[in-house]
Each structure stands twice: as C-alpha cells, then as structure tokens.
Design a protein around this nucleic acid. Structure first.
Length: 488
RNA sequence: GGCCCCAUGGAGUAACUGGUCAACUCGUCAGGUUCUCAACCUGGAGACUGGGGGUUCGAAUCCCCCUGGGGUCACCA
C-alpha cells in the first residue's frame, strides 16, 4: 500500500556526515513526504571502536541544518525502537538463534590466516573470492568438540544454490548467481553480529518498505534478500542511488574536495542551496526548474525518476545556486547569517554585531548582490575593518589606480573635504562628483580607479559613495590622503 | 581479476509507453549596462545521444556485440 511507506536513513557515527550520505537521507526523506509515509533515522553504531556520540550528534545536526526532520529515531523516539543499533543486540542474537535452529547458519572454525590465503589463491586464479565451505558440513558433535577444546567459531550463512534476483526501483531487474555470493559471516567469533545481518534484522523490525541507499550497497543486496527469505519475511523494495563522483570520476572522497556537509556549512553556503544542489544530483524537478524549495522537492520527488549514472560534483554550480539564494534573502535574515562570519574573521566582536547593528546592516547590504556565500560577504567587507593607513591594495586594484595617475584624486581631496563637511548625501555626492570629473574634462575612471583603490584596495566592488557613507568623512579623507602618498 | 551497475555537449539534467531542427541550467566566449566588480540583458560556440551492428517507415529511446568508466569482493559499516 502506498500509504504505509516506511523508509530509513542509517548512518554510522564514525565520521562527519558525507555529502553523499546527506543526499541519501534527503531522497529517503523526500520519498516519505511525497508518499505520505514515515522517515526513520537509525544510528548504526555497532562499530564501537570508531563510533562516537559526537559524530552522532554532528550527523543529526547536519540533517537539521538542511531542514530534514525524521518521524522516528533518536530524540523523537517511536514505537519500533530502539533506534540505536547497539541497543538492539539482544534482538539480533535472538534472530540469529532462530536462524541457526532452522539450519541456515553453521559454525565455521577456519582461522583468519587460512581465509586470507584462500582469498589470495582465488584471486591469483582469477576467481571470485569466496569462502570455500570447508566447515559447511561439520557435524554438531565435531563442532561441540572443538568449542569445548577452546575454539571460537563464527556463524556463516548457508547460501543455497541457484540465483537471487530482485527488482531495483531505479535499475530494474538485477540478478546474482548464488555461487558468487559467499557463505558470509553473520555472527563473529566474539558473538557480535555483522552489518549485513543486523541491517536486515533492523529493517524488518522497523517495517521498512523501501530501502533507498547508495549504489555501493548493490552487491550486499543478494545477501540481504536471501536473509529475508530465510527469515520468511517480506522482501522490501530496493532503490540504489547513483554515486556522487569527484572530478576524477571516482566516488567522492576527501582527496577530490570537501566531502563533509559541515565543510559547506563552515564555508557559509546557505543550507537551502546545498539542499537544492543535492536534489539535482541524479534528479530533476521538471527538467526546467533549477531553483526550488524543499517543499517543492517533497511534492514532486519519486525514486523511480532518479537517474542511473553517477554524477560529478560541480562546485561551480553549487556556488551559483548559493548566490541565487543569498541574493534573495531578506536583509535582516542575511545579516543574521553572515554576522557570525564577520566575527569569525576577526572583524568584529560578537557584541558589536548588536551594538553596531545599523552599520553592519548597511555594510552587508552593499555586498549582498555580489556574494554567493556568507563567507564571501565577510570577505568583501574586510576593507572596512583595517586601519586607514593600511588598506590592503590588491594587485589589480593598484594597477588600475596607477594607470590613471594621481592628478584627479589630489585635486578631488580638497573638494571632497569641503563636500563632506557639508554632509552631502551619497546620491548628491555621486552626482556632484561626476559633474566635477566631467568639468575637468576627465573620463570617470581617472578619478574613480585611484579613489576606489585608496578606499578599498579592490579593483571592483560596491558603489563608491555607499562605501564613503560606510566609512564616514574622517576615515574616507584619511584613506584618500594615505592613498595619495602610497600611489604617488 | 571475478561479479554487478552505468554511458545524452566541459558539468548537472530533460526528451510521456520509439515520431518534425536533441531541450533546460551551470560553465565558457562576445556585446550591452556600470566608476568598477558582481548582478542583470542580448547573442554565440559547444552533442552526428561512447563505438559498431541490427529491429522498424522511423530510435537517444527496443535487441546484440564491443569499448570505456564506476562499484564491490572483510570476523568495517
């Protein structure tokens, strides 16, 4: 039934939330919303060495930052918990017991060393590396004897002959020969259950109807399908999402760029833009609309529309999208988001954000249309927060200035001093200045290039009269004075 | 290497169940606008839909082969 769709996102808290994981979560979420189903969050923290509460928190925070909420899982609870895998150990072992009883599991005493050399040999012979079944037919007596002698066996799944096929919502029918699927370990020698085993236990327990995950799990699927059947459970629908690739066309990894969602948060990307971008990796709303909200995603998304091929992560397009969102933000909202970046850059103290609110607001307003991230907002305002005699002249800015010479600027200084004393408004000053330049028979850049360099050091930027308004008369004149010397 | 998956301009995608010039967005190039940068506007280049065979009146869409790329082969998840 379409109305009891249940999907899940099952990250392991062994690192920060990966950009690919974030998209997997997003597509699961969107599918649940579209179908009126439930989105379950399950934390797979069974690798106790590597799992930490901090990473778990970071992952939850990452999802929240994007605007993804979950109906069941950590914090919110639910009646099919616990949602932390480590807390489900008993249920896992009970299921293992049941399976063993039914004859699906057998004890294996092969040493890791034997398995390793077996693998090597098989690879050398160009065969599929798989367990050879040496312990498959041991009798109960033999096994008990070895256990009493102190050997600790693993429990392997007895893969039947034949083939396993399943239908993938994105890829269609997929078939694997069972002989290619080895008798994999379900319970380790120390009694802990393995990943492929617990995934099925948990997905079944949580009544997951659609398993939507990354393509790297495609080869795990036959093992899991076999397990569902052995357990006499209904097999869920599967959908394997194409991978997000780096510039090298390989699975996105740290080598090829920022892979953690946090990196984009830290770099000041609007979360809406990141979410929008992620949606576009493997999916399109209608083939025309590029910029859309999370609500539009939720009302249009369907996994069957996801494309099969992996997509290369294009940072340029993400930046473009970021700019779309940032320019569209309400100024107060933008100030709120960009403020922390001004503080982080060391331009302002936290308290000044409030104390100098009007100034900050006016400053941010000047760069909104030319910024794509909050970090860029701060970056472009850097010139405001340096001493007037130490404005950093960019190479290009200075070159532009020197090309024009100092004549216009030095003549302008006394004129400007006078105007500023009369408290001319930005608009008045702009008009008057242009008239003044024209009267001298100069081209506009003759004055503006050196003036811009003196005031901001940059080759381009906001309207200079807005800059002057931000700096105020005193600092403006100080900078022009300093500029005349430095450029002379 | 075995197995599995995939393949539309540089990138992301579209093209209903095969049907006129393969569409949109990013990027790129040129011009306009601006003191300038960005934004914005206009225009352009860029794909014989990886290659080769079929099926068909007709294929990016169906079939086969090849090539290329990726994923995966643990007592990690």
């Amino acid at each position: 039934m379409s109305d009891d769709v249940r999907v899940r996102f099952a990250p392991s808290p062994t690192g920060r939330l990966h950009i690919g994981g974030a998209r997997t979560a997003l597509f699961n979420w969107a599918y649940a919303r579209r179908r009126g189903g439930r989105f379950v969050l399950r934390v797979e923290d069974t690798d106790r060495q590597r799992s930490t509460p901090e990473f778990e928190q970071a992952i939850l925070d990452g999802l929240s930052w994007l605007g993804i909420d979950w109906d069941e899982g950590p914090i919110v609870g639910g009646d099919r918990g616990p949602y932390r895998q480590s807390e489900r150990r008993e249920a896992h072992l009970a299921t293992a017991g049941k399976l063993a009883e039914a004859g699906w599991l057998y004890r294996c005493f092969c040493s890791p060393e034997r398995l390793a050399s077996l693998r090597e040999e098989q690879i050398a012979r160009k065969e599929t590396a798989a367990y050879d079944g040496r312990c498959r037919e041991l009798t109960a007596e033999e096994c008990d004897g070895r256990v009493n002698a102190g050997e600790a066996p693993v429990l392997r799944f007895r893969v039947p002959a034949g083939e396993t096929r399943f239908s993938d919502l994105i890829r269609g029918d997929v078939a694997f020969q069972n002989r290619e699927v080895d008798d994999w370990v379900t319970v380790r020698a120390d009694g802990s259950p393995t990943y492929n085993f617990v995934v099925v236990c948990d997905d079944a327990h949580m009544a997951i109807t659609h398993v939507i995950r990354g393509e790297e799990h495609l080869t795990n699927t036959p093992k899991q399908v076999l397990l569902y059947r052995a357990l006499e459970l209904e097999v869920p629908e599967f959908a394997h999402l194409p991978l997000i690739l780096g510039q090298d066309k390989k699975k996105l990894s740290k080598r090829t760029g920022d892979t953690a969602l946090d990196d984009y948060k830290d770099k000041g990307f609007p979360p809406e833009a990141v979410l929008n971008f992620l949606s576009l990796q493997g999916w399109a709303l209608d083939g025309e609309t590029e910029v859309f909200s999370i609500d539009q995603l939720a009302s249009h998304f369907d996994v069957v529309d996801v494309s099969k091929g992996g997509s290369i992560f294009d940072a340029e397009k993400l930046l473009w999208l970021a700019g779309q969102y940032l320019r569209d933000e309400d100024l107060d909202h933008l100030v709120e988001r960009a403020g922390p970046f001004l503080v982080r850059a060391g331009y302002l103290a936290e308290s000044e954000l409030a104390d100098r609110a009007e100034f900050v607001r006016a400053a941010v307003a000047t760069v909104q249309e030319r910024s794509r991230t909050y970090a860029e907002v701060a970056e472009q305002l850097a010139y405001l927060f340096v001493p007037d005699d130490a404005v950093e002249y960019s190479e290009k800015g200075e070159k532009n200035a020197r090309k024009q010479g100092n004549d216009a600027l030095s003549a302008y200084l006394p004129w400007l001093t006078d105007r500023l004393a009369q408290r001319a408004s930005a608009d008045e000053l702009r008009d008057a200045t242009k008239a003044w330049v024209a009267e001298r028979g100069d081209k506009m850049p003759a004055l503006f290039a050196p003036l811009r360099c003196a005031l901001t050091g940059a080759p381009g930027g906001p309207d200079l009269f807005e800059v002057i308004a931000l700096l105020g008369p005193e600092r403006t004149l100080a900078r022009v004075g300093a500029g005349l010397e430095r450029l002379g």
